[in-house]
C-alpha cells in the first residue's frame, strides 16, 4: 500500500453538546478509492466535514500530504487540493451551470480538455450550460456538484453519498464518472450507502460505528464476507 495522503489520528468532533466523532483513526492511501461505510448516524459525514475544516476537531490531528491541517481554515484546505462534494450537493442555484463551474475552478480557468471530458461523462452539463443551476433535476444537480469538484485536478476528493435518492440510470452515470476519475489515478474518499456502487468502486474500505473506525481492510474482503457485513453494518448480501 502506498504512503497515506490523509491521516486522521484520534480525531474527536463535537457538534453542540453531541460527541459525534470519538477517536477516528483513518488512513487514506494515495491513489485509489477508499470507502467510508457504516450505518446512518455513525459519523461518516462528520468525518468528511471535519477533514474539510467545516467542523473543528477538538482533539486529535489530521495530516494531509505531510502537513497538519487540523486547524487550517477551510478555504486553505481547499486550495491545498481537496475537492469536496457535500451530501446536500451545495450548488449555487441562482448562478448558471457555467458560473458554478467557473467558481469551482478557484485556481484559474478550467482546462479545455478537462471540460470536454466532464461534458462527455456528464452530458446534461453541456445542454444546460447557460441555465440557472436551480432549474436542474436532482440527478443533474448531483452531476454538477461532482463536476465542480472535478473542475480542477485535486489531490484528494471527499465525496459524500453521491447516489443518495437518485434513479438507477443516473447512479450508473455517476459511478461511471467516478470510475473514470479513479482510472486517472485520483485519490478518493467516498462515503456511500449503495453497497453495489461501493463494491464496484472501492479499493480499500473503512467501516465506522459510534464515531469510530471499527474495521479497515480491502473492499473485496468485505464484499465477499456476508457475515462481516452483517456484523459491521447490518447489511444483508441479498440487498447488495
Amino acid at each position: 500500500m502506498s504512503e497515506p495522503i490523509l491521516k486522521l489520528s484520534g480525531v474527536h468532533t463535537n457538534i453542540a453538546q453531541y460527541h459525534i466523532l470519538q477517536g477516528v483513526d483513518l488512513e487514506v492511501p494515495s491513489g485509489g478509492v477508499t470507502m467510508l461505510l457504516g450505518r446512518n448516524g455513525v459519523g461518516k459525514t462528520t468525518t468528511l466535514r471535519t477533514i474539510m475544516g467545516l467542523w473543528r476537531a477538538h482533539q486529535g490531528t489530521i495530516d494531509f500530504d505531510g502537513a497538519d491541517i487540523t486547524a487550517t481554515p477551510t478555504p486553505a484546505i481547499a486550495r491545498r487540493g481537496v475537492g469536496f462534494v457535500p451530501e446536500d450537493m451545495g450548488i449555487f442555484s441562482d448562478l448558471s451551470v457555467e458560473e458554478n463551474m467557473i467558481l469551482a475552478a478557484a485556481d484559474g480557468p478550467i482546462d479545455k480538455q478537462r471540460l470536454d471530458w466532464l461534458f462527455t461523462v456528464f452530458p446534461p452539463l453541456r445542454t444546460f450550460w447557460k441555465n440557472p443551476a436551480g432549474n436542474l433535476s436532482g440527478g443533474q444537480k448531483q452531476m454538477l456538484s461532482i463536476a465542480r469538484a472535478m473542475a480542477q485536478e485535486r489531490r484528494l476528493y471527499l465525496i459524500d453519498e453521491p447516489t443518495k435518492g437518485l434513479a438507477p440510470a443516473i447512479i450508473g452515470t455517476l459511478a461511471g464518472a467516478l470510475r473514470d476519475l479513479k482510472a486517472q489515478g485520483a485519490t478518493i474518499l467516498l462515503v456511500e450507502q449503495n453497497f453495489a456502487v461501493a463494491k464496484a468502486l472501492g479499493d480499500s474500505c473503512a467501516v465506522m460505528d459510534d464515531g469510530r473506525i471499527v474495521w479497515t481492510g480491502a473492499m473485496v474482503e468485505l464484499a465477499e464476507d456476508a457475515a462481516l457485513q452483517e456484523r459491521l453494518m447490518g447489511l444483508s448480501m441479498e440487498a447488495a
Binding site: M52, L54, A78, L95, I102, L103, A104, A106, R148
Partner: peptide, 24 residues
C-alpha cells in the same frame, strides 16, 4: 465580475463557497 460571482455564491451557501476555496 468574478468577484461578484463569488459574492453571490457566498450569499447562497457560505460553507460551500469556503469548501471551494474562497475566504468568505
Amino acid at each position: 465580475s468574478p468577484f461578484g460571482r463569488v459574492l453571490q455564491a457566498i450569499r447562497e451557501n457560505d460553507f460551500r463557497a469556503e469548501s471551494i476555496g474562497y475566504r468568505v
